[in-house]
Design a protein around this nucleic acid. Structure first.
Lengths: 208, 208, 208, 208
DNA sequence: CATGAATGAGGTTTCATTCAT
DNA sequence: GATGAATGAAACCTCATTCAT
């Protein structure tokens, strides 16, 4: 009862280390077991296979992140639908970004592993999921701006790209900044930058 | 005399296909040889090992890209040093971006391979190189704006991040847009966005 | 008190299914336990090992079949010794065959498992046992025919082979015919055929 | 050029030994390689996998046997169609049986392996093929007898069974008799027996 | 130039079995 | 009676690489 929990935990810890160091494909189950002080059979008692072991590390964090993103984006959308002023949007953006960031830092190892070392696993395209969620949200905002303020329509491609950039920004912060506090500061500037970029798209052509 | 060139070429073609499809680690030399209609020994006559084969595909493109980036950034810097007006900067940015893009599309397969499927090879951190070059350039621009126009100092971290975003934008365009013409259009908007973002950083705080 | 019996029973049922589907060697104890809704430990409480589990399924049927064969053959032999007429033999043969068949169909799953999927188990040569019993019986009959009716001696080898054929015929019926009723009909023709064959051996050469 | 042939040959020899001794499933590739004095990689240079190695041993013999059976059965059928007399049939039967037997003994190890130790391989149902070929032939003969001589129709089931018995007889001889000469003698008696059995089916009911 | 045989280590996975609880 | 964690050996197979020819 005590031992079993410890073994599984040891395996997960050892696996996390190995996956982070070597990436999904280069990680060796034999190594993971050896470093956990356990035989290979033990691993297969707790996990189906390599993918399952990897999934055991990242599935929960992914679910949480999905939840955080969906919740915040839904709330923001609700406010827009309620006709609340645009001025507040910026704060909402920051708030959402910080919430996401907190979630990322809560499982920093797992997300770094997932977002930079998952090649070969079934999660190797996970970023696309997060991009898509963000993209939908951006599309709604852009549509709203078009409808309510007569802003010009922003091309789908650009929406997609901006969403991608935001996700890339999160990944960048996560991998470059250890301190969550510092990350929160950074992300605020990122948002400022991205809002500036957004309006830059509507700016009149500079010449010709 | 004709055959030897053909063999090497066949190997490179087959290798490119395999690397793109499966990524560096999952690519199998045996497969590459089989698809090239050549034996493993032949491969080892032309190439030292797997890394070398990979390098033979990407080294030249990398060198070219380095050259393009360095040249354009140097030119732009020269203009700044010569005291030429800021107004031209935007055009320069676009020009540089297009030059880079052309280089990327000239070897599209190789760069896609390099920028998205190099995990496990010695090029897996190649993006960092390009980011660094860009970053240095941005640092210089920012320093110049600070000196000449009294603009507030932009933190190193932010400079680094913006450079990273630019590179990510290139990767994104490269992987999502097949047509070079369309890519050129996209990149111009990207630049607009990024310039907007840059100025957004200096904008007064929106609330407090 | 109820549960223990249920557990053992569930294991046996699950094991039978697995052994029939996959054969002795490919059957997996883990699978058997999982499908029985029981842990591996439980299996090892009731059974020594894989062989023992297999034996628990087939030992009893084997014993019964041995008994049926021995009894019928002994009875027939007794009649012969008592000088009863040969004419009755054929009926005796049919009777014995039907008795055997009934026994086989009483445990059809077990015998199919045993007679076609026991490779790797210690029962893989069980057919030889049944052949040997039958062979001895046939030897006695042939000897009797030789002694009493002056029939020519039938070679041991041929006796052995005919016995083998009979057993094979049983196996064939068992595996191809689900309905016991139909099987009984079949077996009678089989006997007719075999008696015909038997006499065919004594027939004069057809030409030369 | 000399070594490669030797190695492959050594592997095949070692494999044949292992397969015969342990059966397909229990045979260990490691063992096969070790006994051949070769590394596991070598095996996989010559063969795709375990099945392929097995196939390399038995495929050719199977093809030959198919050919022999089809040829002899076709010839016999041709004679029947030509309206030749039944009396010759028996000789034809014997001739065909001997041809088959010769083929079996030409690759005795392989056929023993195939017919008694192939459980788990993709050849585990190969007997059915041979039975089917024989069965079709018997069906034609029976139909002919029905048409030309007014013999009663023999049920499909019985035809199938008799074909099965013949194949079983071949297997039995092959596994029990080392000497091909002796086998040829045996098989002639087998044919006599089976012809007797065949006519036994048409015999008047013995009682009722 | 190129072949093709061969290496040997390592990969993931499955297995029957054991034993403390 | 039964659990479930853990063992450890062995399974098949793939890999990049080497080398005599």
């Amino acid at each position: 009862m005590k031992d079993n929990k410890e073994t599984k935990e040891k395996l997960l810890t050892s696996a996390k280390k190995e996956f982070i160091e070597k990436g999904y494909l280069s990680a060796s189950l034999r190594n993971i077991c050896k470093n956990a002080g356990v035989t290979t059979g033990a691993l297969y008692f707790f996990f189906e296979d390599k993918q399952d072991l990897y999934g055991a590390l990242v599935a929960e964090p992914i679910k949480k992140l999905h939840a955080v993103m969906n919740r915040h984006y839904a709330e923001e959308q609700a406010q827009i639908n309620a006709g609340l002023l645009m001025e507040t949007d910026r704060d909402d953006d920051v708030e959402a970004a910080i919430a996401i960031l907190r979630c990322l830092y809560l499982h920093r190892d797992e997300f770094m592993m997932l977002l930079t070392k998952s090649q070969g696993s079934c999660y190797e395209k996970i970023t696309d999921d997060f991009v898509m969620i963000t993209e939908k949200h951006f599309r709604q905002i852009a549509d709203n701006m078009e409808k309510c303020y007569g802003a010009p329509r922003v091309a789908d491609y650009l929406i997609h790209w901006i969403a991608h950039m935001l996700i890339d920004a999160f990944i960048h912060i996560l991998t470059h900044e250890v301190s969550e506090e510092a990350a929160v500061v950074h992300v605020q500037q990122v948002i400022k930058y991205m809002i500036g970029g957004w309006f830059g798209l509507f700016a009149p052509e500079m010449k010709d």
